[in-house]
């Protein structure tokens, strides 16, 4: 079953075509890897899918619903959430608050309820706290849950990114380089966490440059180059594909005829 379909998505920045018509499908219940050389448009594609940057053209369908042009908050509420490449923990909020922020359906986010009827928010807040604690425990963040997010180490910030995404009760998580700058042991551990998410019925699309990680983790790999879908298949297929190797290593000068 296809969970996410991207159809002819284009996006330019002042004449630079970051995405030149991307088509791809993300199957449900698997880890799909999105790879490609720097500047291929991977992060821009994530931005377009999640509404952070609206696409110029094209259509994005998630779980049977056209989400093209929706705001990021609306897209998150449909069950599609993303993490950021450079971990963006909210520094002046505690780890727990960072997690709770991503919680859904909190009536206390209405100003009037918050000011005059906090009782209505309390029950939901308790549910969210229980969920946050479960997420923190799962990701080994329990011992820092009261610290400000700015005090976390690089690896913990990456874990917090994943934890926050889990708080939204997502169907699909887009992970932008979940192990970049993380030591190999923790990278392995993050990989294990991601595997368990699949068992919980969550689908993952991830951008990654660590090829051993991609090889180990991804069921399916899509290659993006110069703003286009270049190839896809299992990691072995893709790695042995000459076109992909050219895209990564640079191409021989080809005369345009």
């Amino acid at each position: 079953m296809t969970l996410l379909t991207v159809n002819g998505v284009e996006r330019s920045f002042y004449g630079v075509r970051a995405l030149a018509g991307v088509d791809l499908e993300v199957p449900a219940g698997r880890i799909t890897g999105l790879i490609g050389p720097n500047g291929a448009g991977k992060t821009t594609l994530f931005n377009c899918i999640t509404g952070v940057i609206p696409p110029d053209k094209g259509r994005i369908v998630f779980d049977g619903r056209d989400i093209t042009g929706l705001r990021p908050d609306q897209i998150t509420q449909t069950g599609l959430v993303r993490t950021f490449q450079i971990a963006r923990g909210l520094p002046r909020l505690s780890v727990l608050e960072n997690l709770l922020l991503y919680g859904t359906r909190q009536p206390g986010e209405k100003a009037l309820t918050a000011a005059f009827n906090p009782g209505a928010a309390r029950q939901r807040e308790e549910e969210l706290i229980a969920r946050a604690v479960a997420v923190a425990r799962r990701l080994n963040l329990m011992h820092v849950i009261r610290n400000p997010a700015s005090d976390l180490s690089g690896g913990q910030k990456k874990l917090l990114e994943i934890g926050r995404a889990l708080m939204t009760e997502p169907k699909l998580i887009l992970l932008d380089e979940p192990v970049a700058g993380v030591n190999p042991t923790l990278a392995k551990e993050i990989g294990t966490h991601l595997r368990t998410l699949i068992n919980d019925g969550i689908t993952i699309l991830l951008i990654e440059h660590h090829m051993d990680m991609v090889a180990r983790l991804c069921d399916h790999v899509i290659v993006l180059a110069e703003g286009r879908h270049l190839a896809e298949g299992t990691f072995e297929d893709v790695a042995s594909n000459e076109v992909v190797q050219l895209a990564y290593m640079g191409r021989r000068k080809v005369k345009v005829t």
Binding site: D73, T76, V81, Y102
Partner: peptide, 8 residues
């Protein structure tokens, strides 16, 4: 942007 992605 993070707040927005958080669904707010």
């Amino acid at each position: 942007q993070v707040a927005s992605v958080a669904g707010k």
